[in-house]
Design a protein around this nucleic acid. Structure first.
Length: 270
DNA sequence: CCGCCGCCCTGCTTGC
DNA sequence: TGCAAGCAGGGCGGCG
């Protein structure tokens, strides 16, 4: 499931491969995947557009177009954005294909069809509801402590809430809480200041290390070249029920919190 | 504003 | 062995 490090890796790949390309033709095979503003046709509006930039916001990959519009792709659980040459074998569940002048193409595939490719106009405030970027200078200890204060929601649910911090999903929420030695169900507002500082540090560290390893490939994630990441070999708790905690040796448990599987160590996460 | 819940969807796992 | 039910999960809309 692509979270911040996976989308960052995809976007870095796209930067070298599709920025500068002109869209010659657009194939939309499953209409509900390709979303456009009212009375705008996704395929027609994109035909002839040139891609001038690629960036990430939260878990979204943004392709900036010469006209000022953008293509915002949310990958959700199983979405993939892969660049290929014409004729190369397709991933299963390919729903949208951007064909470029000169023969290259960008495929969006998603077996569960939760993901969306959205055409967004130049002034459309599509990311207003997204919170702070955890790897930006705005994510200060003071800002984080302020965001947590007064909240009763379990700290793990807080980390998953994209309106607060943008980009953290289930894997990195579990990993960051383990690294900061904090129980996932602790009420957010009841973290001590040192605990909040540890958690902020852990969030930044785990995201940066995962980016360095080009993301976590457990089920479906691949980068813009179709290649797997490497951080699945560096996970401490995610998916590890019954295995020893790398810090204290106690058995990792799996519980359910905020409707999500949650892996943690009962002994050293307080 | 806040928090909670059900829904979307399909492939894999589980259980009889 | 075969089949159906159950489960997984990010984001969003509805509800209290």
């Amino acid at each position: 499931m692509p979270e911040l490090p996976e989308v960052e890796t995809i976007v870095r790949g796209l930067t070298g491969k599709v920025v500068g390309a002109t869209i010659a033709r657009v194939e939309v095979r499953l209409e509900r995947i390709a979303v456009a503003p009212p009375r705008v046709n996704f395929a027609a509006a994109l035909t002839g557009e040139r891609i001038v930039g690629a960036r990430r916001r939260g878990k979204y990959a943004v392709l900036e177009l010469a006209s000022g519009s953008s293509i915002v792709t949310g990958l959700r659980m199983t979405g993939r954005l892969v660049v290929a040459r014409n004729g190369r074998r397709e991933l299963p569940g390919t729903h949208v294909v951007l064909h470029f002048k000169g023969g290259g193409l960008l495929r969006f595939s998603d077996v569960r069809t939760f993901g969306r490719m959205r055409l967004v106009g130049p002034t459309e405030a599509w990311d207003d509801a997204l919170g702070v970027e955890p790897l930006s200078s705005s994510f200060t200890p003071e800002a984080f402590i302020g965001m947590l204060s007064g909240r009763t929601t379990p700290v793990k649910a807080f980390l998953l809430d994209q309106r607060r911090i943008a980009g953290i999903g289930n894997i990195y929420a579990c990993e960051a809480l383990w690294e900061a030695r904090i129980r996932p169900n602790r009420p957010s507002g009841r973290l001590t200041k040192p605990a909040a500082r540890r958690l902020r540090r852990a969030i930044i560290d785990v995201l940066e290390r995962a980016i360095e390893m080009r993301g976590t490939s457990i089920d479906d994630y691949v980068d813009a070249d179709g290649l797997q990441g490497g951080f699945q070999n560096n996970l401490s708790v995610y998916g590890k029920q019954g295995r020893p905690c790398p810090r204290c040796g106690a058995s990792i448990v799996r519980t359910v919190l905020a409707q999500r599987g949650t892996w943690w160590c009962r002994d050293c996460q307080k």
